[in-house]
Design a protein around this nucleic acid. Structure first.
Length: 474
RNA sequence: GUCCCGUUCGUCUAGUGGUCAGGACUCAGGACUUUCAUUCCUGCAACAGGGGUUCGACUCCCCUACGGGAUACCA
């Protein structure tokens, strides 16, 4: 049997990191089993239509390297892959359920149900449909359907229970009387999630439904639907949720949740994938860094955790830094140059970029990290730097450096060390006093990359200019 | 309220009856270094509670507590 899985987001505007994790697990599972990975857009809620959301979703998915075998832009005989374009299919299928009495038309006005709900809630009862239209005469209902606004509900058995198997959670049992007569077709003719989902999963030949845990409680309804149709249900795996630091379901309010935002901050797709893969799954070894190939090779549903996982940015940061460090020079330089404006650096840009490579956590930090190279030192009036500049040896050091510089070459970073050696000999100043004076004169900062590299980057003339400027301020 | 799911260091996790409960992130200390960072070393830190079962429970069962999810003509 060929594995067929799907990622079925509703287009709400952007790709949520939780959604990405679900997509990733589906993708890994599909690739591992040489199966198919399908992208299906669940746009059955007309009121939630967001312009450009689907394009945006696909863009993020592509940026993350998750390619699908069929989807909105890759139609085939099982499509279309927009649920909003499959209305006739749902119409046809619901008829079967109506005919067998597994579903019925409900003409209850919204207001009545609303009031009913309220009453039930205040009475401390479980809210649910009271079944007024449950036993309407089908032919009578059929007639009314032409003129009256209505929905179609599924008929849940009055008694009994259902036990189902989840690949991650094991066997779960739910009583039928707990389940409401779920709406299948809304009054606007669109299907609800439950109906469209089951119909599409079956028609598209989905073999494994891998989705978030929030769907676990409604699985009985879905199973009942498969049963009503006489279809064999796929296997199900409900993934633990991604959590905020306070353990609630990961939400926008408590930090970034959009994949595009992480990308915009300079997190690498590989790092984000690696990080997300480990949030709820691990291969049982101490390994933490995985290529996509390794993840595909090692992934299995039975090693997915049951408990929710807090999305810990600290760990993601560490991982991203690791991935940046691991990039080869060419790849790094290519990426880094996307994050700086081209005119900020001189012709020795590469050495500056390479120098800050190991300290980068995210690429959006690049301009800040490059400051020691590009910024004009500002006058030091207070703080540790100002104190050091007041040091009486400082002017001597700078004078000496200026003269030495004129007489010696500076064609590579190492030349600067030789140069400083000379300054040390001539002034008798060494260690921190020597180096800090120069660092402050050149960058205006007490911290920064190795001075030899900064000096080489700046070049003789610029160094002399800055040294003289510093001397004038003293 | 009701139903469902869950619970190992602060966080991500390993662990499937006998372990000094392991690793990673964070944090602290140290080494290296002209500074910061990187790197390396060391350290702090956990089985929610109570009952069983067993010679023996983090591991199995039950209860409680806590957390989360679901209870929509949203997905």
């Amino acid at each position: 049997m060929t594995v067929v899985v799907r990622f079925a987001p509703s287009p709400t505007g952007y790709l949520h990191v939780g959604g990405l994790r679900t997509a990733l697990y589906n993708y890994l599972f599909a690739r591992k089993h040489h199966g198919r990975f399908i992208l299906r857009i669940e746009d059955t809620d007309q009121s939630r239509y967001v312009e450009g959301a689907v394009e945006n979703l696909m863009k993020s998915l592509r940026a993350m390297g998750l390619d699908w075998d069929a989807g909105p832009d890759k139609n085939d005989e099982k499509g279309p892959y927009f649920q909003s374009q499959r209305l006739s299919i749902y119409q046809k299928q619901i008829t079967r359920l109506l005919e067998t009495g597994k579903a019925y038309r409900c003409f209850c006005p919204h207001e009545r149900l609303e009031a009913l709900r309220k009453k039930q809630l205040t009475a401390g009862q479980a809210p649910g449909y009271d079944g007024v239209c449950r036993n309407l005469d089908p032919s009578e209902a059929e007639k009314r359907a032409h003129t009256e606004s209505h929905v179609i509900r599924m008929r849940i058995p009055d008694e009994g229970s259902i036990t189902f198997h989840d690949e991650i959670r094991g066997d779960v049992t739910v009583d039928f009387h707990r389940i409401d007569d779920q709406v299948l077709i809304k009054s606007d003719g669109f299907p609800t999630y439950h109906f469209a989902n089951v119909v599409d999963d079956h028609l598209m030949g989905i073999t494994h439904v891998i989705r978030g845990e929030e769907w676990l409680p409604s699985l009985p309804k879905h199973l009942l639907l498969y049963d009503s149709f006489g279809w064999e249900p796929p296997r199900f795996a409900h993934l633990p949720l991604l959590l905020n630091p306070d353990k609630s379901k990961l939400s926008k309010r408590q930090g970034d949740v959009a994949v595009e935002e992480y990308l915009a901050k300079g997190y690498l797709p590989q790092a984000l994938n690696n990080f997300l893969a480990l949030l709820g799954w691990n291969p049982g070894t101490d390994q933490e860094i995985f290529s996509m190939e390794e993840l595909i090779d090692l992934f299995s549903l039975d090693r997915v955790n049951k408990a929710g996982a807090v999305f810990n940015v600290e760990k993601l940061n560490w991982m991203n830094q690791h991935y940046i460090q691991a990039m080869d020079e060419t790849a790094y330089l290519k990426e880094a140059k996307k994050w700086i404006s081209p005119h900020r650096l001189n012709e020795r840009a590469d050495i500056a970029l390479l120098t800050v490579k190991n300290s980068l956590v995210r690429f959006d930090e690049l301009p800040e990290k490059l400051k020691p190279f590009v910024s004009e030192p500002t006058e030091l009036t207070e703080g540790e730097g100002a104190e050091l500049m007041k040091n009486e040896t400082t002017p001597h050091v700078l004078q000496s450096l200026r003269e030495t510089l004129i007489q010696h070459p500076l064609e590579k970073p190492e030349d600067f060390f030789a140069l400083m050696k000379t300054v040390q000999k001539e002034t008798g100043v060494k260690g921190k006093n020597l180096w800090m004076s120069v660092r402050l004169a050149l960058t205006g900062e007490i911290h920064g990359p190795e001075l030899g590299i900064i000096a080489y980057y700046l070049g003789k003339e610029e160094i002399i200019r800055r040294v003289e400027s510093a001397l004038r301020k003293m």
